[in-house]
Amino acid sequence: MRITCPHCGERDHREFYYKGHALALERPAADAGEAAWDDYVYLRENPAGVTRDLWYHEGGCGAWVVVTRSTLTHEVLSTEPASEARA
């Protein structure tokens, strides 16, 4: 699998650490309530298709990268730095 780091270019996925869905970027307010926090920390859309997830270029530049890709084919559609990816 090859992932394009926005800073370093196309790299082997061995260089990356995987965290999970990019909804981790949408942290609720402390008082957002039980449901919002359950959604954020535990519940997952878990799509069979296009997803956005978070990869950390641990063996490279240290960037957190949002990767848009398919969970069915592993095709990578786009990548962007997490710092610029928040909705």
Binding site: G20, H21, D39, Y42, L43, R44, E45, N46, P47, A48, T71
Partner: peptide, 18 residues
């Protein structure tokens, strides 16, 4: 592994990642 898709038919989100 397909639990999330099935549960989605019932309008549910599960704490599952495949």
């Amino acid at each position: 592994g397909r639990s999330s898709q099935v549960a989605a038919m019932a309008g549910m989100r599960l704490p599952i990642e495949s």
